[in-house]
Design a binder for these strands. Structure first.
Length: 182
DNA sequence: GGAACGATCTGC
DNA sequence: CAGATCGTTCCC
C-alpha cells in the first residue's frame, strides 16, 4: 500500500476534502478509513488562519501534506491535513474514520468506549495523535500517514455545513461517506 | 496583564 | 445541557 501523492493535496481545501474520503489514516498498527472531513480556507472566518499567521497556525501556511494538530477546550486534540501551496493557510479537518485495524489498541486508548473515532477529538485519542505530530508529513515516514488502497471516494458524498463553528455557519464544506459511521 | 472563548466530548 | 480545562488571541 502506498502513501497518497502530495499532488492530491495541493489544491484548494474544498476541492481536496472530498478526495480524502475513503483514504486510509494509518498510525502504527491503527488503520481507519476516512469517512468525514471539513475544509478550512485562508479567507474563511471559521478558519484558524483567518486572522493571519501565528505560532499556533504556522503549519497551515506551510507545504501541503503536513499535519496541523491543535489543542482545544483544554483537553482535546484535532488533526488536519494541510492543503494548497506553500504560503496559503488552508487545511482539511479529519472529523471521523471507520476503524479498520488496530481496534484493540484504539479501544484501550479510548478507555473501553464503543465510539472509537467518530469525531475529530476521539479520532486523535484513538490514533494517539498529539502536538508532537504537528508539522509531520502524512505523505511519507512513520508518523500518522494517509494511504491509498484503491478505494475511490464516494460518488454521492453527503454534503452539509461544518460543525461546532460560530462563523460562516452556512458554508457547506463538510463531506461524509454515505451509510458508514454515524 | 487579563479576560473571553474555542473546528469537543462526556456524564448527569 | 452544562462542566471540564487551558492555550491562544485580542484588548486594555
Amino acid at each position: 500500500m502506498q502513501h497518497v501523492e502530495r499532488t492530491l493535496l495541493t489544491g484548494d481545501a474544498p476541492d481536496v476534502a472530498p478526495r480524502l474520503l475513503n483514504k486510509l489514516l494509518v498510525h502504527g498498527v491503527c488503520i481507519g478509513r476516512i469517512v468525514e472531513v471539513e475544509a478550512y480556507s485562508e479567507d474563511d472566518p471559521a478558519s484558524h488562519t483567518f486572522r493571519g499567521r501565528s505560532a499556533r497556525n504556522a503549519v497551515m501556511f506551510g507545504p501541503a501534506g503536513h499535519l496541523y494538530v491543535y489543542f482545544t477546550y483544554g483537553l482535546h486534540h484535532c488533526a488536519n491535513v494541510v492543503t494548497g501551496r506553500e504560503g496559503v493557510g488552508a487545511a482539511v479537518l479529519l472529523r471521523a474514520v471507520e476503524p479498520v485495524g488496530g481496534v484493540a489498541l484504539m479501544t484501550q486508548r479510548r478507555h473501553g468506549r464503543r465510539q472509537l473515532a467518530d469525531g475529530p477529538a476521539k479520532l486523535c485519542e484513538a490514533f494517539a495523535i498529539g502536538l508532537e505530530h504537528n508539522g509531520t508529513d502524512v505523505c511519507r515516514g512513520d508518523g500518522p500517514g494517509l494511504f491509498d488502497d484503491g478505494m475511490a471516494p464516494p460518488a454521492d458524498p453527503i454534503i452539509g455545513p461544518r460543525i461546532g463553528i460560530s462563523k460562516a455557519v452556512d458554508v457547506p464544506w463538510r463531506w461524509r461517506t454515505p451509510s458508514i459511521g454515524r
